[in-house]
Design a protein around this nucleic acid. Structure first.
Lengths: 222, 222, 222, 222
DNA sequence: TATGAATGAGTCTTCATTCAT
DNA sequence: TATGAATGAAGACTCATTCAT
């Protein structure tokens, strides 16, 4: 329609809007939901971001809620499988394993975009039990298993001590959760590099705060 | 809290049923906002919960947002001061201090209702920067200071080792954050006692996972 | 708003829009539904006709359908009771009774506005079973009883013959139904006075078409 | 309809499943319009019922309304011609003629599906004057003529009396109209066999209610 | 100050209609 | 000619906000 395009004989100069498949809509929805939450997201905006018109969304999803659920379900990915494989096959020490596994988890979260999902689950999970449950089944439970396996391995090999922590191994990933929360709330006022969270995380998980050699010294509080 | 009340033993002469002052409205708002988020909360419901009528809310707050902000601001309480005092005056070992401080934090959060605030900050902070900032200034920063002081104390006394964790001491409270998130999303599918989170928390913070070679003494927590 | 009212010190000069009670809305709805049918009626138009704004309707009715049902229900009037009383107490011949009762029914229908109801029931009854049922119970069944009583009376007094018609007495009012249908569809192309329908109705009901050989007597209605 | 087809005796080489010509679409439309009314009928449903896709409808009809009108027009059948022929040629008594003609009308209506048309005219006629007019011209007027001829015949032969009814002969078919209305609204709550309507109809038309020989005899059912 | 009826802008949802293939 | 994805104008419904009492 503009002259700029006149040069081409290309039969499908801009192929209309043919890329408006559910995929684009889901992606757009994911972004909007993550940014605004379910209630505050306007389908109009989702449509705009997807490059379609409001009505088009309804060709694929029968309601805002269904889009929401479909969007989330589509991203429920077995991302812990990666870690699971690692744990199962790891040849080295359990400490090394932790030092390898946690960075992978951070990478999946913050580089591969998984934290968007987590953000939505955290903010909307309370209001969409079905989704929270799905996520719990598919991701959280699986994650717990993997972490538990990792911890168990360490204990069995005599590398980790048995403790309240090994009784609730999920707590091992708590700092990653906190990082997500931090990034979505306070980071703009006090930015912290993910890397630093990761380092502190690994550190705490492995060593805790206490100085190791409390040997004969028994320094402290005496 | 105000002097006006000090004079009287008067049985509150006239004043409608629910005592519909801003206080009730704020309290009701807090609950609703925590349950539904800002966008999905209807002033009608807030009013009902407060025992007043929708219009009445506007007598005290000029908009939904103002109520929201007022409600949160009213609860931004220096609850870390308590811990701060504890840290400053603690006579015992830093390990003991941690074992004392963390339970207090959990109590403040889960027994005194502070997690309601946290929940709101977490779910809405991204959309209300002003509020997140306020909370960051008044609560988070203060909390960081207190935790940092605690950690520093331990390091200075030679009880804690210096590490990536002591460089980002806030991570020490990560499991509490995770507990809040868990309670608001997955607890209904997999209930976990707060106490267990706390135990694992203390455990991880102090000892980490590694089976420490504590010389022959085998001193610790036995 | 007009000077005509200026004389008064009346504290509520034009009482705003205070007459926008459910009654007005129902009345407006009835008109619109009768004119356009349920699906084609826009709440906006109902509101306008009632002198209110769209949203106001929802203060009283939670949906278009509820308004529709409420409107109809409110007009389901025992208008046959009148005829019932007449039949019960009538002193004269059954022929006279018919000649008295049918005009009353026509008056109720066409002068007192009942045909609006009938029109809606006819056009929408198939799609609103609940309403049709209510109408059937409250009006049609009652009407049948009354007509049946009237017919039975005639038969018992030897004035009416027993026949297929007296076995299905509702058919006696068929021409009134046809009149309603005519008025709503063909009257604009071929207007027929209600009176003529009524006359033919009475005539057919009483005498039928056949030239009765009434012996020498020529008894009847002369 | 086009010449292109003229060349071939080809056994309809390609043509999809349901043979999606206007005929199917019209038939489907008729059903849907009869069931739901014009406004509440969705072209999507019409298409589905016709075994085509929504867009296909627009190949034959430029709008929903045009389909509606075309559908109705296609069924405006001179179904009274049948009765007209009967009346013109009938050798027997007029009473017999009525006893022959009315069942035919009922058959056309309820067995040959004409009541579907009537139903639509009744429910939508008020909103589609053009259609009502067409129907009035082609069917109603013609019907009136036929009925009038029948009645006139009886009067002229001395079999029927002259009366208000013979002045408005259309009323003679009123019970058939009522039967249609009953079937579409109350039949589900109180089913009545068409046959019974017909019997009462014939009965009323011919004899009316009155006992014939009201002479001195006072014969009847005493 | 409190009420609650009324407002009207905003959003979801539907569906007749268009159009590239 | 048929398809079905896309459009966009409507229309139902919600709810923050106002205002007369």
């Amino acid at each position: 329609m503009t002259e700029r395009e006149s040069a081409a004989d290309t039969p499908k100069p801009r192929r209309r809007r043919k890329d408006a498949r559910p995929g684009e809509i889901i992606e757009a929805g994911l972004q909007e939901f993550a940014e605004n939450g379910f209630a505050a997201t306007r389908l109009e905006d989702v449509a705009k971001r997807a490059g379609v018109v409001k009505g088009t969304i309804y060709r694929y999803f029968s309601s805002k809620e269904e889009l929401f659920e479909a969007a989330l379900a589509s991203r429920i990915t077995p991302f812990f499988d990666d870690v699971a494989g690692l744990v199962a096959a790891y040849p080295g020490s359990s400490e090394e394993l932790v030092r390898t596994a946690l960075p992978r988890i951070y990478k999946a979260l913050f580089e591969d975009g998984l934290h968007v999902m987590m953000r939505i689950i955290i903010t909307e999970g309370g209001r969409f039990p079905a989704i929270a449950e799905l996520y719990h089944q598919r991701v959280i439970s699986r994650g717990q298993e993997v972490i538990a396996a990792l911890v168990r391995r360490g204990v069995e090999r005599g590398e980790f001590r048995r403790s309240a922590l090994t009784d609730l191994p999920i707590v091992v990933v708590a700092p990653a959760v906190m990082t997500i929360v931090w990034k979505m709330t306070f980071d703009r006022f006090e930015p912290i590099e993910t890397r630093r969270f990761l380092d502190a995380h690994v550190d705490m998980v492995l060593e805790g705060l206490l100085a190791k050699d409390r040997g004969g010294t028994e320094a402290a509080d005496g």
